[in-house]
Design a protein around this nucleic acid. Structure first.
Length: 149
DNA sequence: GCCAACGTTGGC
DNA sequence: GCCAACGTTGGC
């Protein structure tokens, strides 16, 4: 069992959208490192959902991996904003996973609260200049975050 | 809306 | 393969 965190802008796709959809394909990731992390995901891995570029920034909920990495079809669609001509259906560059809604926290775990925790000082998301939309979370980090709730 | 950080692109 | 220019991300 591994742990992860995905970022999303709530104006694009929020935890409430995931709650009502129940399951969604996490498409549109166009960064090699983030893609590689998605390829490492296993069914049942727990994935924090983080709202960025929002009024309230932080972890808002939890989801679980429900489908292993498979080709991101939006890369093949010329009309899609994530279209990438380099990615071919017979040799896809980009992948996505399915995420299943698990829970929405009563309160957002703000970025400030995450920074307050010593156990989280090495956390990927808190490292300066980190822009990856998919990042791993260590077991002890996951447990420390669950304790905040 | 600003701007630092950083990934990507393309000329050489 | 280097690196300047450019675009995007994301906190503030």
């Amino acid at each position: 069992m591994k742990y992860w965190l995905v970022k999303t802008e709530p104006t694009t796709y929020s935890i409430d959208d995931l709650k009502s959809d129940k399951t969604t394909c996490w498409d549109g990731v166009r960064n090699y490192q983030a893609r590689n992390f998605m390829k490492d995901m296993q069914i049942g891995d727990q994935v924090f959902v983080y709202h960025s570029n929002a009024k309230e920034i932080g972890i808002v909920g939890l989801s679980k991996v429900s489908k292993l990495a498979y080709p991101d079809k939006t890369a093949f669609d010329k009309k899609d904003s994530h279209y990438d001509p380099k990615s071919k259906p017979e040799k896809p560059t980009w992948f996505m996973v399915d995420l299943k809604f698990a829970k929405k926290y009563k309160e957002i775990i703000t970025l400030d609260k995450l920074r307050e925790k010593k156990a989280l000082s090495d956390m990927f998301i808190l490292r300066k200049g980190n822009r990856l939309s998919v990042t791993p979370v260590a077991k002890k980090e996951f447990e420390a975050i669950e304790k905040i709730i």
